[in-house]
Design a protein around this nucleic acid. Structure first.
Length: 917
RNA sequence: GGGCGUUUAGCUCAGUUGGCUAGAGCGCCGCCCUUACAAGGCGGAAGUCGGCGGUUCGAGUCCGUCAACGCCCACCA
């Protein structure tokens, strides 16, 4: 009664969807594929049947990348008529080796871009790397140091050449790694932040911002790294909590009448004190304001000033003011016209201004100063003090705040235009909660110090005239001084913060400021995928610059990934020694396994604890898929799978069931991927593949493949379902799916095929009942230690005729059951009854099991059913529930009650029947 | 000092408009080498969803509060 053609309408979309990639491409890909296959087959034996029983990722994964590239799959031009869709890679540091975080981040981007490509978009994933000023310079300097050289021995020009040479030698490492993991970036558009084009963009931006008054040069307190010998921006300083000492020092009034006690964690800076500050409202120091104190050790006479910046609660309420080495002190000095005396130099040694401490290292000087203060009786007390100390994020050295002449971006006017698009929805963070962090950070933004005293980077396009002292900021080197006409201007020595060029990445890589085709077509980009650790460094600044220079938000969806953590919950890090190297993993388990494991855990914005068990499970999935295709190829001729235009004729109920489930899975998978819920999406597909296709459909197909009437439809369905699984999985595990595609489909590349379209096939009635019945019998067997080899006879009462129509043989093969389909047996006594929906199965117990032992089992089932029934009834008896709950929920409960009551009746009857034996 | 996150089976984690008889992988127990896969199959045990209080017909899911752990930010002299 089923199986008569129900639901076999042929949706036209299915038939038409094949052409979306253009025919020219397929000719090319077929040719390249043949050579890949030949190389593969030569290592195996003969044609069909060369697939080994277990999957070896290494052999397969080394093969495909080149094929994809040669076929031009990764270029958006492969879909010439497609809507543009673009992602720019967060450029890894050129010094770097990709770590597990990159692997996660790029696995997500690849899953997005591969799917979009298969959906027919002109999908561009633009790769590249970042020159990483300090990091790279440090690496090369370290190499030089091994030869006993410093960069100064080489001189600027020669040193920079060395760095380029280093880049040429090591810069390809990242590229190889990206290829190793199968990431589908368009290498023809690869960019580097120091490329001519990008440097040009940097110059334009600098000059324009300068002309707009948004870049200025000035003396401010900056963070200085005495080891890297450069200024740092605020966010390049990492604060760590440390226990220090708060030293209370007595400063005597010069009039000899009393004293004021200041508290400091850095006694050595007192050498540069030019005032003591107290809060104007502080009663304790009312009389001190306006008087002067004598600076101990130095003897300088300094004033006591009143300033609202002083915290009454902290320390003694009186603060020593060292304008040259503390941001707050600098502000106070500005307000009161105090001098700034530098007492610490760029090497972190005491300057000449430090008198007898001249030349001492800052921490030595701290001890020396305190010792001397103590000796002279100025130290009132010393107490432990918890505070956080800034360290250079590159080398870990304690940074030195110091007054320095540097270049800054005035960020104030850039903030609001970069905040507005998030607020009004032109761009969004996923998950949304990051928006608040972003807003808060933007509100408290300070001017950004962009000059670095390095040689590796974009040199600041400013020139100085030694004649008249004028400065020119210009895109090109001026021949003469505009003011005095003098020739031979001196270019600024400093380079720009690396992030100054990175912030232009989404448009500088597309050719901006030139109006290129790529810029017009692929900018603004669609998605940015990045870790939350660089929202401030990078995302915020790209928003500022993107809006300011292109009038466009540089990306629409900002997908924030979590950090990959070790199983101990700590951040994976080489220095802790708990890091998993993605390439070790790829070698041992396969790149696919790594990608699958990462994406299975990639819930938006959540950190990912990764351990090898997950990766191992992912590896086994590859093997499972591999073997599913082997099975398929035992029944389906390679290359005979209906193409997108093909469709199984007269699919049987089993086929219709799996095709309908495939439809539902595609819908759900697409929805979840569109919401960037990778973990859910992959989990959903994974479960469909394993527990429905592999565990049920493949087993059931074995039955229908033997049935001459159904075999052809099942062969086709099998081929179609497995093929679509390969397509759906391809963005996640590209290598194994490509390999299996070549085995099964043998035409074109899965990487370039189109995304599945739904069949519109309706599920047959009876699958749930079948599964439930088989489950019950398997459980029965397990509980009673009945060998699977022991056949079981059943009498089936099937009022709707479902079972007889398509189950008969399924029961036989799935559960070793021989069934009669003509209703209950003559005598029910001594049988156990299994209920599945409207269907009942009667199993004779005599001779199989101890009948009496069935009673407790039944009793347990009754109790459980009663419990559920009571729960549902309780809800339905509550008028509040029936009145207020949505109709479908109420109906669901009613259905449950009906089902449970029926089941309960049957169980009770059964128990009674057992008693009769 | 502010802000955010996490707390669900032995372990690692899912669970997004509140309807759950709470899931997965690994581990554990039992049976099975069934010709795609033993890197497998079948079955099973295992959770008062951190504590307390609240909203609701109904809370793992929303609100409040407490606790533990983690992260970010802060001119903590």
């Amino acid at each position: 009664m089923l199986g008569d053609g129900q639901g076999v309408g042929r949706p036209s979309a299915w038939q038409e969807s094949g052409a979306s990639n253009g025919s020219g491409f397929f000719a090319l890909s077929c040719a390249t594929r043949r050579s890949a296959t030949r190389a593969y087959s030569s290592s195996g034996d003969q044609g069909k049947g060369t697939m080994e029983a277990s999957y070896d990722p290494q052999a397969v994964e080394s093969r495909w990348y080149q094929v994809w590239e040669d076929a031009g799959v990764f270029k958006p031009e492969i879909n010439p008529d497609g809507e543009p869709f673009s992602i720019v890679i967060p450029p890894p540091n050129v010094t770097g080796v990709l770590h597990i975080g990159h692997a996660l981040n790029m696995s997500i981007q690849d899953a997005i871009i591969r799917r979009k490509r298969m959906q027919g978009y002109a999908a561009l994933w633009l790769p590249g790397s970042d020159h990483a000023g300090i990091a790279t310079q440090n690496v090369v300097e370290r190499d030089l140091a091994k030869e006993g050289l410093s960069r100064h021995d080489l001189g600027r020009e020669s040193f920079v050449e060395q760095v380029w040479a280093w880049k040429a030698k090591h810069g390809n490492r990242i590229k190889e790694q990206i290829r190793r993991l199968g990431f589908s970036t368009d290498w023809s558009r690869e960019r580097f932040t120091l490329d001519d084009g990008l440097s040009d963009a940097v110059g334009h931006v600098f000059v324009e911002l300068y002309n707009q008054g948004l870049i200025y040069r000035g003396e401010r307190i900056i963070n200085w790294c005495p080891r890297c010998h450069t200024a740092l921006s605020e966010i390049e300083v990492e604060h760590e909590d440390e226990v220090g000492e708060l030293t209370h020092i007595r400063y005597d009034f010069t009039d000899g009448n009393g004293s004021v006690v200041v508290a400091t964690t850095r006694p050595e800076t007192m050498l540069g004190d030019t005032a003591v500050a107290v809060h104007p409202d502080d009663e304790r120091y009312k009389d001190a304001i306006g008087r002067t104190v004598s600076l101990p050790l130095i003897g300088r006479e300094i004033p006591v000033v009143a300033d609202e910046g002083v915290d009454l609660e902290f320390g003694t309420g009186a603060v020593k003011v060292t304008p040259a080495h503390d941001p707050l002190d600098f502000e106070i000095s500005q307000r009161h016209g105090l001098a700034a005396i530098k007492v610490i130099d760029t090497e972190a040694n005491i300057t000449e201004a430090g008198g007898e401490y001249f030349g001492q290292e800052r921490f030595e000087a701290r001890e020396a100063v305190r010792h001397e203060l103590n000796k002279q009786g100025y130290i009132v007390k010393v107490e432990d003090h918890h505070h956080s100390v800034g360290h250079c994020s590159r080398c870990g050295t304690v940074v030195e705040p110091m007054l320095s002449l540097q270049w800054f971006v005035k960020v104030g006017p850039l903030v609001e235009p970069a905040v507005a698009p998030i607020r009004d929805g032109r761009a969004r963070f996923v998950p949304q909660r990051w928006e608040n962090n972003y807003f808060r950070w933007m509100e408290n933004l300070h001017d950004w110090c962009i000059s670095r005293q390095l040689w590796w980077g974009h040199r600041i396009p400013a020139w100085y005239c030694d004649g008249c002292g004028e400065m020119v900021v210009s895109l090109t080197e001026p021949k003469t001084c505009e003011s005095c006409g003098r020739e031979g201007l001196r270019q600024e020595q400093d380079v720009l913060d690396t992030w100054f060029s990175s912030q232009l990445w989404p448009f500088s890589t597309m050719g901006w400021p030139e109006e290129t085709d790529d810029l017009a077509r692929y900018y603004p980009t669609d998605v940015l995928v990045t870790g939350y650790d660089i929202i401030y460094f990078w995302v915020a600044r790209m928003l500022m610059m993107g809006v300011h220079f292109t009038d466009n938000v540089p990306f629409q969806d900002i997908v924030i990934t979590g950090l990959v953590r070790a199983t101990d919950g700590r951040k994976m890090s080489k220095s802790i020694g708990n890091a998993i190297d993605p390439f070790d993993v790829a070698d041992e388990y396969g790149a696919d396994a790594l990608r699958l494991a990462l994406l299975q855990s990639a819930a938006p914005g959540h950190d990912i604890p990764l351990n090898v068990e997950w990766i191992d499970a992912a590896r086994r999935f590859g093997n499972k898929l591999w073997n599913a295709v082997r099975f398929t190829l035992n029944h389906v001729e390679p290359g005979s799978v209906p193409g997108k235009g093909g469709y199984p004729d007269n699919p049987g109920p089993v086929d219709r069931w799996i095709l309908s489930r495939l439809d539902e899975t595609i819908t759900e998978y697409d929805r979840l991927l569109d919401e960037y819920r990778f973990s859910d999406a992959v989990g959903q597909l994974y479960n469909f593949a394993w527990s429905e296709v592999f565990d049920w459909y493949l087993e059931m197909a074995k039955t229908s493949l033997r049935d001459v009437d159904q075999a052809e439809a099942t062969r086709q369905t099998l081929g179609v379902v497995i093929r679509e699984l390969l397509v759906l999985f391809h963005p996640i595990v590209p290598f194994v799916t490509e390999e299996l595609w070549s085995e099964l489909v043998g035409d074109g590349l899965v990487a370039a095929t189109s995304w599945p379209v739904k069949t519109g096939i309706a599920a047959p009635v009876g699958m749930e009942e079948l599964q439930s019945l088989i489950g019950s019998i398997r459980r029965f067997r397990a509980e009673h230690r009945l060998s699977p080899k022991r056949g079981i006879q059943l009498s089936i009462d099937d009022p709707d005729g479902i079972a007889a129509a398509w189950w008969r043989d399924q029961l036989a093969i799935m559960a070793n059951i021989e069934a009669q389909y003509d209703g209950p047996p003559g005598t029910i006594a001594g049988h156990t009854r299994i209920t599945a929906g409207n269907i009942q199965a009667f199993m004779p117990l005599t001779g199989l099991v101890d009948v009496a032992a069935e009673r407790p089992r039944l009793q347990k089932a009754i109790t459980e059913t009663e419990k559920l029934l009571d729960r549902s009834r309780g809800k339905l008896d509550n008028p509040n529930f029936t009145d207020r709950a949505p109709a479908d929920v109420v109906a669901g409960e009613e259905r449950k009650v009906a089902e449970m009551s029926a089941k309960l009746d049957k169980l009770r009857t059964q128990l009674a029947e057992l008693t009769d034996v």
